[in-house]
């Protein structure tokens, strides 16, 4: 909890592939590491909301805890500057969790989240915090913070490359903050990321806006 506060203090907030996108748009995202994965499909009926399905897997050695949720994301605040963009998002969802540790079994659960980001064409910072609760059975959270830079400004329809550093905590799964340097490639509506954590865990993420 202390580490979390420090993280929140150091970096302010989010994700370049945003959970709420243009009206009528779909966002598909898949984030994968050995200890966790998150996949979602969201539809934005307005530029302020998106709804969709969300799946999480957390792994502790051979045991998995998996959550499947119906989710709503709200763009609470956006600042469109001349050279930057900043966002704050709220997340909420309900569904089921299949737990293989703690209180094993399938339980009803809900999740809450807060996400914020600030970015220009060359700099990127983001923080996300999600909490998962199945009353009396499960209480866990994950927090991610990112900073990144792009060595050049790519125009629309050309490839943009980013170097990023992600710090991530998954409560109950890891004891330390997992630090993952990564490269992000960005082409039109497709974004993919590859990285390897300082302890050697691979990371592979893919996001598409349709």
């Amino acid at each position: 909890m202390k580490i979390l506060s420090i993280f929140l203090f150091i970096v302010s907030a989010g994700a370049y592939a945003h959970p709420v996108i243009y009206q009528g748009g779909w966002a598909l995202s898949s984030s994968n590491m050995p200890d966790y994965s998150n996949n979602y499909l969201m539809y934005s009926p307005s530029n302020r909301y998106s709804v969709g399905i969300d799946h999480w897997r957390f792994s502790q050695e051979a045991a998995n805890t998996e959550a499947a949720l119906l989710k709503i994301n709200h763009l609470l605040w956006r600042d469109n500057g001349e050279n930057h963009q900043a966002n704050i998002y709220l997340h909420g969802g309900g569904g089921v969790v299949d737990q293989e540790w703690g209180s094993p079994g399938t339980h009803g659960m809900y999740m809450l989240g807060l996400e914020a980001d600030w970015e220009t064409r060359r700099l990127y910072t983001a923080i996300k915090h999600y909490e998962f609760h199945a009353p009396g059975k499960l209480d866990m959270f994950t927090t991610q913070a990112r900073v990144g830079f792009s060595p050049y400004e790519a125009d629309f329809k050309s490839l943009q490359t980013w170097f990023m550093l992600q710090g991530m905590i998954i409560d109950e799964v890891q004891e330390k903050v997992m630090i993952t340097p990564m490269v992000r490639f960005f082409y039109n509506n497709v974004l993919w990321e590859m990285g390897s954590s300082t302890r050697g865990d691979w990371m592979l993420n893919l996001m598409v806006h349709l």
């Binding site: 243009y22 943009q160 960005f186 509506n189 806006h209």
Partner: peptide, 10 residues
């Protein structure tokens, strides 16, 4: 507020 190709694409 337009900072990346995803903005442009939208």
């Amino acid at each position: 507020g337009m900072v990346c190709s995803m903005c442009a694409q939208g």
